[in-house]
Write a protein that binds this DNA or RNA. Structure first.
Length: 630
DNA sequence: GAGTTTGAAACT
DNA sequence: CAGTTTCAAACTC
């Protein structure tokens, strides 16, 4: 609790000392580091603007959509955490996304603070209306809901409750969403809520699908276990709070749907903030999983892996200390979770993988003078803002999934791979055969946009030659996905990536830095290429698709899938939204450097993978009106 | 584990 | 915008 409170306080309180931590003095010296709360708020405003702009681009109903987009962005990110899809490589990406989430959430909260509560209310109410009235939007809601569920689980339980209704709703027809939500809230008992929170997040992944039903029964048990197993009192407290505050939260939920629940709105925002900040909870959860004693653990195991990846984000704070240790152990299993080793950047530059990934540094990091910690949240956000101001895509996923079919982007076609590095590499000596190469590292082929020399990228050469060529590479590729050929593989992986990376996805301007591009940690701990890694950002694709296709198509298609799969893919929404949000969003975006940036493309197409269903959903999700370009 | 290589990020 | 420097990861030994 105390932690939670602190976090909230820090977020809300502009006056809060920027650097409370031991490093505080250093931080001040750092340029750009010392940013005041006002700046942060400004960021929020900017974000807001981005969204609005996106809206303007889109349809008339843009207003609401903007809010949607916000939610979508945030929510999706969360999903990533759990998304444990069986296929998914529990790679670091997860962590990254989580980080994104946190960041996004934070910003979101800031926005809320900065903005008029009334305004927020309107948006929310409109959202509800929109959903009710529009089928297309339904998808959005569902996705949002599912996302929300994830958030709830991983982030603060309290907040999650607020969404509980939404989550439940997800199961129900959207049309009834708001109304039912309100009516249901009262009926729900705490247990259910908790269960929902826990379970839903998991759902996001395929596993989730499989486990959803099974999981629910054990939800209570799981929750209990958490309490029992938790080393960290703080975590326990949080979970318990959830139950205690249920009524209040319920109110909040209702407010969300309620047209004029300014209070509700504020609460909601607050909740989001809390989620962002309360990583401990997640950690607790993880611990739980890590203990593996639970019956539920089995189902969580997969997601757990991912979660482990998120350790950084999830466990920025170590209230208890023990928890972090456990996590580490856990994480150790998956080396995929990387930690930085920054010496001079203070982990506030893109040099820092953690920072670049949008995640906080955690214990395992060997960094020095690290400011990339929750305590320095302000600094981190400010720095981010700075960097983004320089390069809006700085935090976008480095690898953008693009549909092969999509030709608009142009260059992309050169590479067989469906995904591309947003800027392209500039390798001179590695021949794009080592992880020095971001394209290779990201499991994507080089494209025309790359300035590499002697490209031999196993995933696809710059010249467009088939991926794979070198024997050694083939091995890797084979491992990774046999994919060199493969769109399918890519798609499959894309799904994961989308969920994970997307957040920031490609989309050009991600208003909220939330999403962190997945950290390029595609490679498995053993150094093999991550199967999923190459997949890349699907979300962006979603966005792209939406733009191209236009809302109508999207909306129509989406609902269909949604119904089939209640779980909505996390990222897609956000990406799409982002795309809208960013004025420039268009299909292409150019990096400040004039380096080539490939917009995310969607490959709607299908992915044969088992996740296909899910993937489709994600892509289709972008039903937001604002998304459509015209 | 230390040292080297590499290329992105940052700076000029 | 190009060139240079800085940085930290990737890699090698």
């Amino acid at each position: 609790m105390s932690i939670l409170t602190r976090n909230l306080g820090s977020l809300k309180d502009p006056s809060k000392p920027e650097f409370s931590s031991e490093n505080g003095n250093k931080a001040c010296t750092n340029e750009g580091i010392g940013v005041d709360a006002a700046q942060l708020y400004d960021n929020s405003a900017e974000l807001q603007e981005n969204f609005d702009s996106g809206v303007s681009n889109g349809e008339a109903s843009a207003g609401p959509s903007s809010e949607h987009s916000k939610f979508a962005i945030e929510l999706p990110r969360t999903l990533k955490y759990d998304c444990g899809s069986p296929d998914c490589d529990p790679t670091p990406r997860c962590g990254t996304e989580a980080g994104c989430m946190s960041a996004s959430l934070v910003q979101y909260g800031q926005e809320a603070s900065a903005k008029d509560s009334s305004e927020g209310e309107v948006h929310l109410s409109e959202m509800c209306r929109t959903d009710q009235t529009k089928e297309g939007t339904e998808c959005d809601w569902e996705s949002l809901i599912s996302d929300a569920a994830d958030i709830l689980i991983f982030n603060s339980p309290n907040d999650s409750e607020a969404f509980r209704g939404l989550i439940q709703k997800s199961m129900d027809p959207l049309t009834r969403f708001c109304t039912s939500l309100m009516s249901q809230l009262p009926q729900n008992d705490v247990n259910n809520v908790q269960n929902t929170q826990i379970v839903d997040p998991i759902d996001s992944g395929e596993q989730q699908e499989t486990h959803d039903l099974s999981a629910k029964p054990g939800e209570d048990s799981e929750l209990q276990e958490i309490d029992q197993t938790q080393d960290n009192p703080a975590d326990i407290v949080l979970y318990k709070n959830m139950s205690s505050n249920t009524s209040e939260q319920m109110d909040n939920e209702v407010a969300m749907c309620m047209p004029h629940g300014s209070k509700a709105v504020s609460n909601l925002h607050r909740g989001m903030r809390r989620r962002c900040l309360d990583f401990e909870i997640v950690g607790a959860r993880r611990k739980n999983l890590g203990d593996g004693s639970n019956s539920s653990s089995s189902m969580l195991s997969q997601s757990d892996e991912k979660i482990a990846c998120h350790d950084k984000q999830l466990v920025p704070f170590k209230p208890g200390g023990d928890s972090s240790r456990r996590r580490l152990e856990h994480a150790g299993e998956n080396e995929s979770c990387k930690r930085c080793n920054c010496k001079k950047s203070k982990c506030l530059k893109l040099y820092c993988e953690c920072f670049a990934a949008g995640v906080y540094c955690i214990e395992p990091c060997s960094c020095q003078d690290c400011f990339n910690k929750p305590i320095h949240e302000d600094t981190v956000l400010a720095t981010r803002k700075q960097i983004e101001s320089r390069n809006p895509l700085a935090f976008a996923p480095k690898v953008i999934r693009s549909a092969d079919s999509v030709t608009e982007i142009g260059d992309e076609s050169s590479t067989p791979a469906s995904a591309r590095h947003k800027r392209g590499c500039n390798c001179k000596k590695s021949n794009c055969l080592k992880k020095y190469c971001e394209c290779y590292q990201g499991g994507v082929g080089c494209s025309i946009g790359c300035r590499c020399e002697g490209c031999k990228n196993a995933f696809g050469r710059k010249d467009g030659s088939a991926p794979l060529g070198t024997e050694a590479e083939q091995e890797e590729e084979t491992e990774a996905c046999e994919n060199s050929t493969v769109d399918k593989a890519l798609q499959k992986s894309d799904i994961q990536n989308n969920e994970e990376q997307n957040p920031s996805s490609a989309l050009a301007i991600t208003p909220l830095r939330l999403s962190r591009p997945l950290v390029p940690l595609p490679f498995s701990s053993n150094g093999k290429l991550p199967r999923t890694s190459f997949l890349t950002v699907g979300s962006s694709s979603g966005l792209y698709t939406s733009q191209k296709l236009g809302k109508p198509s999207i909306l129509r298609s989406v609902p269909k899938f949604e119904k089939n799969f209640q779980t909505v893919p996390e990222d897609e929404m956000p990406e799409i939204l982002r795309g809208n949000c960013s004025p420039s969003t268009g299909i292409k975006s150019s990096s400040p450097n004039s380096k080539r940036v490939t917009p995310p493309q969607s490959d709607f197409g299908a992915s044969p993978s088992r996740r296909s269903g899910r993937k489709l959903i994600l892509q289709s999700i972008p039903s937001f009106p604002s998304l459509t370009q015209h």
